[in-house]
Design a protein around this nucleic acid. Sequence first.
DNA 1: ACATTAAGTGATT
DNA 2: AATCACTTAATGT
Length: 212
Amino acid sequence: MKDVFIEKLKNSYSNTFEKELIEEIIKVGHFEKIYKDKLLIDIDDDLTHVPIIIDGVVKIVRKNEEGNELSLYYLEKGDTCSISFANCINRRKSIFRGTAEMDVEAVFIPVEYIDQWLVKYKSFRHFIIDSYHFRLLEMVDSIDNLAFLKLEERLLKYLQEKIKISNNKTIEITHQELALDLNSSRTVISRILKHLENQGKVKMQRNKLQVI
DNA sequence: ACATTAAGTGATT
DNA sequence: AATCACTTAATGT
Protein backbone atom coordinates (compact mmCIF):
# COMPACT_ATOMS: atom_id res chain seq x y z
CA MET A 1 0.00 0.00 0.00
CA LYS A 2 2.66 2.47 1.06
CA ASP A 3 4.75 1.59 -1.99
CA VAL A 4 1.93 2.65 -4.27
CA PHE A 5 1.73 5.96 -2.49
CA ILE A 6 5.46 6.50 -2.79
CA GLU A 7 5.32 5.74 -6.48
CA LYS A 8 2.55 8.24 -6.98
CA LEU A 9 4.35 10.83 -4.91
CA LYS A 10 7.45 10.44 -7.02
CA ASN A 11 5.46 10.67 -10.21
CA SER A 12 3.64 13.81 -9.20
CA TYR A 13 6.40 15.65 -7.40
CA SER A 14 9.76 14.65 -8.79
CA ASN A 15 9.68 17.67 -11.05
CA THR A 16 8.81 19.97 -8.20
CA PHE A 17 11.03 18.70 -5.40
CA GLU A 18 14.67 17.72 -5.12
CA LYS A 19 15.44 14.04 -4.69
CA GLU A 20 16.64 14.56 -1.14
CA LEU A 21 13.44 16.35 -0.21
CA ILE A 22 11.34 13.54 -1.60
CA GLU A 23 13.41 11.09 0.44
CA GLU A 24 12.74 13.15 3.56
CA ILE A 25 9.04 13.32 2.82
CA ILE A 26 8.93 9.56 2.50
CA LYS A 27 10.83 9.19 5.75
CA VAL A 28 8.82 11.49 8.00
CA GLY A 29 5.43 11.84 6.35
CA HIS A 30 2.56 9.50 6.93
CA PHE A 31 0.62 8.45 3.95
CA GLU A 32 -3.11 8.34 4.29
CA LYS A 33 -6.16 7.72 2.21
CA ILE A 34 -9.19 9.81 3.13
CA TYR A 35 -12.48 8.63 1.76
CA LYS A 36 -15.10 10.81 0.12
CA ASP A 37 -16.96 13.18 2.44
CA LYS A 38 -14.56 12.57 5.32
CA LEU A 39 -13.26 15.57 7.19
CA LEU A 40 -9.57 16.41 6.85
CA ILE A 41 -9.50 19.48 8.97
CA ASP A 42 -12.14 21.56 10.72
CA ILE A 43 -12.26 25.16 11.79
CA ASP A 44 -10.43 25.70 15.08
CA ASP A 45 -8.56 22.42 14.82
CA ASP A 46 -4.93 22.58 15.78
CA LEU A 47 -2.67 22.15 12.83
CA THR A 48 -0.21 19.45 13.61
CA HIS A 49 0.43 18.30 10.07
CA VAL A 50 0.53 19.81 6.64
CA PRO A 51 -1.02 17.76 3.86
CA ILE A 52 0.49 17.41 0.43
CA ILE A 53 -2.10 16.06 -1.94
CA ILE A 54 -1.16 13.18 -4.19
CA ASP A 55 -4.55 12.32 -5.58
CA GLY A 56 -8.17 13.35 -5.25
CA VAL A 57 -9.86 16.63 -4.43
CA VAL A 58 -10.34 18.53 -1.19
CA LYS A 59 -13.06 21.12 -0.83
CA ILE A 60 -12.25 24.14 1.28
CA VAL A 61 -15.19 25.76 3.02
CA ARG A 62 -15.65 28.75 5.29
CA LYS A 63 -18.28 28.71 8.00
CA ASN A 64 -19.59 31.39 10.32
CA GLU A 65 -21.07 31.27 13.82
CA GLU A 66 -24.59 30.72 12.56
CA GLY A 67 -23.44 27.74 10.56
CA ASN A 68 -23.68 29.47 7.21
CA GLU A 69 -21.33 27.90 4.75
CA LEU A 70 -19.57 29.07 1.66
CA SER A 71 -17.37 26.91 -0.47
CA LEU A 72 -14.18 28.70 -1.46
CA TYR A 73 -11.97 26.55 -3.61
CA TYR A 74 -10.72 23.07 -4.33
CA LEU A 75 -7.31 21.54 -3.75
CA GLU A 76 -6.15 18.98 -6.25
CA LYS A 77 -3.12 16.88 -6.99
CA GLY A 78 0.00 18.99 -6.67
CA ASP A 79 -1.65 21.32 -4.22
CA THR A 80 -1.20 21.80 -0.58
CA CYS A 81 -3.13 23.74 1.95
CA SER A 82 -0.72 26.62 1.92
CA ILE A 83 -2.86 28.54 4.34
CA SER A 84 -1.97 25.90 6.85
CA PHE A 85 1.71 26.76 6.60
CA ALA A 86 1.36 30.13 8.21
CA ASN A 87 -0.68 28.36 10.82
CA CYS A 88 2.14 25.95 11.42
CA ILE A 89 4.76 28.56 11.85
CA ASN A 90 2.88 30.65 14.34
CA ARG A 91 0.77 27.84 15.79
CA ARG A 92 -2.61 29.18 14.96
CA LYS A 93 -5.74 27.19 14.43
CA SER A 94 -7.42 26.39 11.17
CA ILE A 95 -9.74 29.02 9.72
CA PHE A 96 -11.19 26.70 7.13
CA ARG A 97 -12.84 23.35 6.89
CA GLY A 98 -11.51 20.83 4.42
CA THR A 99 -13.45 17.76 3.35
CA ALA A 100 -12.70 15.12 0.78
CA GLU A 101 -14.75 15.91 -2.31
CA MET A 102 -13.67 12.56 -3.63
CA ASP A 103 -11.26 9.95 -2.27
CA VAL A 104 -8.03 11.68 -1.37
CA GLU A 105 -4.50 10.39 -1.03
CA ALA A 106 -2.11 12.63 0.80
CA VAL A 107 1.14 12.72 2.73
CA PHE A 108 0.96 14.44 6.08
CA ILE A 109 4.09 16.21 7.18
CA PRO A 110 4.51 16.99 10.87
CA VAL A 111 4.78 20.75 11.29
CA GLU A 112 8.19 20.67 12.94
CA TYR A 113 9.81 19.82 9.61
CA ILE A 114 8.24 22.66 7.70
CA ASP A 115 10.47 25.37 9.14
CA GLN A 116 13.70 23.59 8.45
CA TRP A 117 12.65 22.49 4.99
CA LEU A 118 11.89 26.07 4.05
CA VAL A 119 15.49 26.90 4.86
CA LYS A 120 17.02 23.75 3.47
CA TYR A 121 15.23 23.30 0.17
CA LYS A 122 14.79 25.90 -2.50
CA SER A 123 12.15 23.82 -4.24
CA PHE A 124 10.11 23.72 -1.08
CA ARG A 125 10.22 27.50 -0.67
CA HIS A 126 9.08 27.92 -4.24
CA PHE A 127 6.37 25.37 -3.79
CA ILE A 128 4.97 27.18 -0.78
CA ILE A 129 5.19 30.64 -2.24
CA ASP A 130 3.65 29.48 -5.49
CA SER A 131 0.90 27.79 -3.63
CA TYR A 132 0.20 30.92 -1.62
CA HIS A 133 0.06 32.96 -4.75
CA PHE A 134 -2.33 30.59 -6.40
CA ARG A 135 -4.60 30.43 -3.40
CA LEU A 136 -4.68 34.19 -3.22
CA LEU A 137 -5.77 34.39 -6.83
CA GLU A 138 -8.52 31.92 -6.15
CA MET A 139 -9.69 33.88 -3.16
CA VAL A 140 -9.85 37.06 -5.20
CA ASP A 141 -11.84 35.16 -7.76
CA SER A 142 -14.24 34.01 -5.06
CA ILE A 143 -14.65 37.55 -3.81
CA ASP A 144 -15.31 38.81 -7.33
CA ASN A 145 -17.96 36.18 -7.79
CA LEU A 146 -19.63 37.04 -4.53
CA ALA A 147 -19.58 40.75 -5.15
CA PHE A 148 -20.41 40.93 -8.80
CA LEU A 149 -22.25 37.85 -9.90
CA LYS A 150 -25.92 37.06 -9.52
CA LEU A 151 -26.77 33.82 -7.83
CA GLU A 152 -27.66 32.26 -11.16
CA GLU A 153 -24.18 32.96 -12.48
CA ARG A 154 -22.56 31.81 -9.29
CA LEU A 155 -24.50 28.57 -9.47
CA LEU A 156 -23.43 28.01 -13.05
CA LYS A 157 -19.81 28.64 -12.18
CA TYR A 158 -20.06 26.30 -9.25
CA LEU A 159 -21.46 23.55 -11.45
CA GLN A 160 -18.81 24.07 -14.10
CA GLU A 161 -16.06 23.93 -11.50
CA LYS A 162 -17.59 20.78 -10.16
CA ILE A 163 -17.73 18.97 -13.48
CA LYS A 164 -14.19 20.05 -14.18
CA ILE A 165 -12.74 18.49 -11.06
CA SER A 166 -14.78 15.32 -11.27
CA ASN A 167 -14.48 14.88 -15.02
CA ASN A 168 -18.12 14.00 -15.15
CA LYS A 169 -21.01 15.98 -16.56
CA THR A 170 -23.40 14.40 -14.16
CA ILE A 171 -23.29 15.70 -10.63
CA GLU A 172 -24.84 13.88 -7.72
CA ILE A 173 -26.12 16.58 -5.46
CA THR A 174 -29.39 17.81 -3.99
CA HIS A 175 -30.73 21.33 -4.26
CA GLN A 176 -30.35 21.58 -0.51
CA GLU A 177 -26.63 20.83 -0.66
CA LEU A 178 -26.12 23.37 -3.41
CA ALA A 179 -27.93 25.93 -1.32
CA LEU A 180 -25.58 25.22 1.59
CA ASP A 181 -22.45 25.57 -0.49
CA LEU A 182 -23.56 28.84 -2.03
CA ASN A 183 -25.06 30.12 1.19
CA SER A 184 -28.51 30.39 -0.30
CA SER A 185 -31.81 28.64 0.27
CA ARG A 186 -33.17 25.49 -1.26
CA THR A 187 -36.23 27.06 -2.84
CA VAL A 188 -34.19 29.69 -4.62
CA ILE A 189 -31.78 27.11 -5.99
CA SER A 190 -34.71 25.02 -7.20
CA ARG A 191 -36.15 27.98 -9.03
CA ILE A 192 -32.87 28.93 -10.63
CA LEU A 193 -32.24 25.36 -11.72
CA LYS A 194 -35.69 25.27 -13.25
CA HIS A 195 -34.81 28.40 -15.13
CA LEU A 196 -31.49 26.92 -16.31
CA GLU A 197 -33.30 23.80 -17.38
CA ASN A 198 -35.73 25.82 -19.49
CA GLN A 199 -32.75 27.45 -21.13
CA GLY A 200 -31.36 24.01 -21.86
CA LYS A 201 -28.27 24.50 -19.76
CA VAL A 202 -28.88 21.69 -17.33
CA LYS A 203 -31.02 18.60 -16.97
CA MET A 204 -32.45 17.57 -13.65
CA GLN A 205 -33.15 14.24 -12.06
CA ARG A 206 -33.72 13.50 -8.43
CA ASN A 207 -30.40 13.86 -6.60
CA LYS A 208 -28.69 14.39 -9.91
CA LEU A 209 -27.84 17.13 -12.33
CA GLN A 210 -26.52 17.03 -15.83
CA VAL A 211 -24.71 20.04 -17.17
CA ILE A 212 -24.97 20.68 -20.88
C1' DA B 1 -48.99 0.71 1.44
C1' DC B 2 -46.71 3.89 4.08
C1' DA B 3 -43.22 7.08 5.68
C1' DT B 4 -39.44 9.84 4.41
C1' DT B 5 -36.99 12.97 1.74
C1' DA B 6 -36.41 15.83 -2.51
C1' DA B 7 -38.29 19.15 -5.38
C1' DG B 8 -42.02 22.56 -7.06
C1' DT B 9 -45.14 26.64 -6.27
C1' DG B 10 -47.53 30.92 -4.83
C1' DA B 11 -47.70 34.53 -1.76
C1' DT B 12 -45.18 37.78 1.15
C1' DT B 13 -41.27 40.61 2.53
C1' DA C 1 -33.29 36.81 -3.35
C1' DA C 2 -35.16 34.90 1.05
C1' DT C 3 -38.76 32.79 3.75
C1' DC C 4 -43.07 30.49 4.70
C1' DA C 5 -46.41 27.27 4.12
C1' DC C 6 -47.93 23.94 1.51
C1' DT C 7 -48.18 20.42 -2.50
C1' DT C 8 -46.44 16.88 -5.39
C1' DA C 9 -43.24 13.44 -6.76
C1' DA C 10 -39.69 9.93 -6.04
C1' DT C 11 -37.69 6.65 -3.17
C1' DG C 12 -36.81 3.24 0.57
C1' DT C 13 -38.84 -0.26 3.84
